[in-house]
Design a binder for these strands. Structure first.
Length: 258
DNA sequence: AAAGAAGACAACCGCATCGAT
DNA sequence: AATCGATGCGGTTGTCTTCTT
């Protein structure tokens, strides 16, 4: 996480004087893309120097995450994505980074913009716009919307071009993560497809906080976990999937606990 | 055709958190 | 325990495009 050297810091101080701001040029994009693809992004603060960019590390990170990173989905949100976004927002509030984990290929910034541009007006204004505290009064509507969507699509929600969602029973505390990274793996070998999902194991199961992956192959749940860091090394793990019923579960559970 | 308004998207800023020292 | 730097997140602002008059 922390990566510093006196040399780097000195260089950084010097470069600070002439740091560029504003929109990125195609040349800058190219430099950043080439550098990250070649060397990775171990330390964002040193990347501008190494890549020959007159930007700060934060700006580089943002540009990569929101625009240059492979696997990003461009274009309009699908109806399903919109439904998911509305539902998750009713649960999570303005937790854009968390919401983005459920929408493969979409960035938190993109989701935030989309919300403010299109969806905000379609939802009655709620407190959590300002308090960041999730509201529950819209949960019933969200459940209905989700359930009807699920039925209409015969238990499948199509999430973007490459993902399909399969109904399965998950605990409300299931969460997904690293969609984008995994979507990259899928792109590399799309012929091999299994269902992979991250989740936090419910506390009652005795392994609270454990972070891992649950696997599905040919609709069969395979009960084992693999640490996040190891996942990408697994040859057979090449596809991600999205459960829609888990959302319904979350919503229903929230509703019940009211 | 031109100017102003509104909308959409990209990027910045400030703060919180985390890990290293 | 305190401090510092890096990173990530959410709110906000800036800029470009499209629409309206």
């Amino acid at each position: 996480m922390v990566c510093k050297s006196s040399e780097t810091t000195n260089k950084k101080l010097k470069s600070k004087e002439k740091q560029r701001k504003g929109l990125w040029s195609p040349e800058e994009d190219e430099k950043l893309r080439n550098h990250v693809l070649k060397y990775g992004h171990g330390c964002w603060s040193s990347i501008p120097i190494q890549a020959g960019l007159q930007r700060n590390g934060k700006s580089c990170r943002l540009r990569w995450v929101n625009y240059l990173r492979p696997g990003l989905k461009k274009g309009e949100f699908t109806k399903e994505e919109e439904t998911i976004l509305l539902s998750l927002h009713s649960i999570l509030g303005n937790k854009w980074a968390q919401i983005s984990k459920y929408l493969p290929g979409r960035t938190d910034n993109e989701i935030k913009n989309y919300w403010h541009t299109y969806l905000k007006k379609s939802v009655p204004s709620t407190k959590h716009e300002t308090t960041r505290t999730p509201q529950t009064h819209s949960i019933t509507n969200s459940v209905n919307t989700l359930e009807s969507t699920t039925r209409k699509s015969s238990s499948f929600i199509s999430v973007g071009e490459s993902f399909s969602a399969r109904v399965s029973n998950f605990s409300p505390s299931i969460v997904f993560s690293e969609w984008l990274d995994r979507s990259l793996v899928m792109e590399q070998s799309p012929q091999k497809c299994s269902y992979v999902q991250d989740h936090i194991v419910p506390e009652e199961s005795g392994v609270a906080g454990t972070y891992g992956h649950r696997f599905y192959e040919n609709n069969n749940y395979m009960d084992h976990f693999i640490p996040n860091s190891d996942l990408l090394l697994e040859d057979e793990i090449v596809c991600t999937s999205f459960s829609d019923s888990f959302l319904v579960d979350i919503l229903l559970s929230e509703q019940r606990s009211m």
